[in-house]
Amino acid sequence: MFLIAPALPALAEDVAFGKARQNTDLPVEVVADKLSVSQKDGTATFIGNVVVTQGDMIINADNVLVIYKEDDSRISKLEATGGVTLVSGADAAEAQTAEYDVDAGMVLLLGSVLLSQGPNVMSGDRINIDLNAGTAQVGGRVKTTLQPKE
């Protein structure tokens, strides 16, 4: 087992994420225990056991705020809080919060972030995931546990 812990908290490490590039133009499906919609500010709040699916990507959280574009034509952003898990292919990440910018295809995970890729595990303060490129950048105090091949 190898343990890598960079000494500088500002360092970040690039890693692959997901089995392929994510098509961010696919429909977004949201399932939850409860829904509250605000026409005033163009948002929808999904509460309790929320599951968001887009293609091969799945986000689970306690609550998800959906922010629509000003013309209400598309989803602009998703903000997930409470026990956030993001899964794409065999890769999974856990965090306290997540922000998904749908147009940019970027997901920012914050707070006690843990990334699992098979037997390899990486933790940090934040992970920026580029769904279009299928890559992730782990930042903050990064710690990695890599399993040698047998």
Rank of each mutant, 00 (worst) to 15 (best):
I67M: 06
E70A: 11
D72K: 13
D72S: 08
D72V: 02
D72T: 01
D72I: 02
D72L: 14
R74Q: 11
S76M: 13
K77S: 07
K77H: 04
L78Q: 07
A80V: 01
A80N: 05
T81G: 11
T85H: 06
L86H: 09
V87I: 10
V87L: 04
G89C: 12
G89W: 11
A90M: 11
A90D: 14
A92L: 12
A92P: 04
A93I: 13
A93S: 13
A93R: 10
E94S: 13
A95G: 15
A95W: 00
T97P: 03
T97L: 07
T97V: 03
A98L: 11
E99Q: 14
E99W: 07
Y100F: 08
Y100R: 00
Y100M: 00
D101A: 09
V102Q: 06
D103Y: 10
A104M: 09
M106V: 15
M106F: 13
V107Q: 00
V107T: 08
L108G: 02
L109R: 14
L110G: 08
G111H: 10
V113N: 07
V113Q: 05
G118H: 13
N120D: 15
M122S: 13
M122L: 15
M122D: 00
S123P: 06
G124I: 01
I127W: 08
I127N: 11
I127D: 08
N128P: 01
N128V: 08
I129K: 06
D130A: 07
D130K: 06
G134I: 13
G134P: 09
T135C: 06
Q137R: 14
V138D: 01
V138S: 02
G139K: 09
G140N: 04
G140S: 04
R141P: 00
R141Y: 03
V142G: 03
